[in-house]
């Protein structure tokens, strides 16, 4: 059940996308998200879909695995669609009682749905093909200029990498505690909303305790290895751009240009 959440999980395999510099992937994901909001016509989304399909194909991550994560945002997706469908003013199509579906609303709802699905797919593709360590390494490098403004870039990225690192561990822990409580007759799936919320107590209390215990242990282990923040810290594997990374940047720029140009030509 918990295995279904793919957001923030790394899928181990070897592919061009996996071996790209994390900075490229971060920039690409950002560019892709921007492009989703720049694109405002059908052709734009077709291009975005093609781009996404190409990256998925190159990444060798089974599509089934990527879309499994979609189940978790299904509710959010539905909510967004419903709101857009009923609350966008414009030419009415159907009207039931106080609710009116407009042409614009229909278009907006479809667009938002596509945007959301692409956004989640794009960003989960990044986390699926990049290890958390790589990801935060990349982020740290990209944000380095902010140090000029006294932003603790290293500390932030360290916190992020620890948080990401612990997602699978806590997930596993949740699974284990859930099973242990189920073995004692706990029921997490049926009953009213209040009853179900209450049934989470036997799960959350041990989970929090274990999280604090792990945090404590980790802090000790880091101190035992003389960790004292980012100053003067060097990397074992510094990030260096290679040919394929430059090529990837080129592809991203081409993609962005294409999206923008398409928007201009049609409108």
């Amino acid at each position: 059940m918990l295995r279904d959440i793919t957001l923030g999980q790394y899928y181990r395999t070897e592919s061009v996308i996996h071996s790209l510099d994390p900075r490229v992937k971060l920039v690409a994901t950002f560019a892709f998200i921007v492009s989703l909001f720049v694109a405002n016509n059908f052709i734009g989304y077709v291009i975005a879909a093609l781009f996404l399909a190409m990256v998925i194909y190159l990444s060798k991550v089974p599509p089934k695995f990527i879309f499994r994560g979609m189940k978790t945002i299904f509710f959010l997706l539905l909510l967004t669609m419903v709101f857009n469908l009923f609350l966008t003013p414009g030419t009415p199509i159907v009207s039931v009682w106080k609710f009116t579906i407009t042409q614009e609303g229909l278009k907006m709802a479809a667009m938002m749905a596509v945007r959301l699905v692409f956004l989640i797919t794009g960003s989960s593709l990044m986390t699926l093909t990049t290890t958390p360590n790589h990801l935060t390494d990349g982020l740290e490098r990209l944000l380095r200029p902010l140090r000029l403004f006294k932003v603790p870039v290293h500390e932030i990225s360290m916190m992020m990498s620890i948080a990401l690192r612990f997602i699978p561990i806590l997930m596993e822990e949740t699974d284990k505690i859930m099973k242990a409580q189920m073995a004692r007759g706990a029921d997490f799936e049926s009953g009213s909303l209040i009853k179900r919320a209450k049934s989470l107590v036997p799960l959350l209390v041990p989970l929090f305790i274990s999280a604090f215990r792990r945090a404590n242990d980790l802090a000790m282990a880091m101190e035992a290895r003389c960790y004292k923040g980012g100053d003067g810290r060097t990397k074992m594997k510094p990030l260096i751009y290679e040919k394929r990374d430059r090529l990837a940047y080129l592809v991203i720029i081409l993609y962005l240009v294409l999206i923008v140009v398409m928007g201009r030509i049609l409108f």
């Binding site: 099973k179 242990a180 189920m182 073995a183 007759g185 041990p206």
Partner: peptide, 20 residues
Amino acid sequence: KKSLRAKVGLVFQYPEHQLF
């Protein structure tokens, strides 16, 4: 399944981690 789990009791590894 619930009555099964009453009949087949399972004590997990480090069971003290499930106390709440």
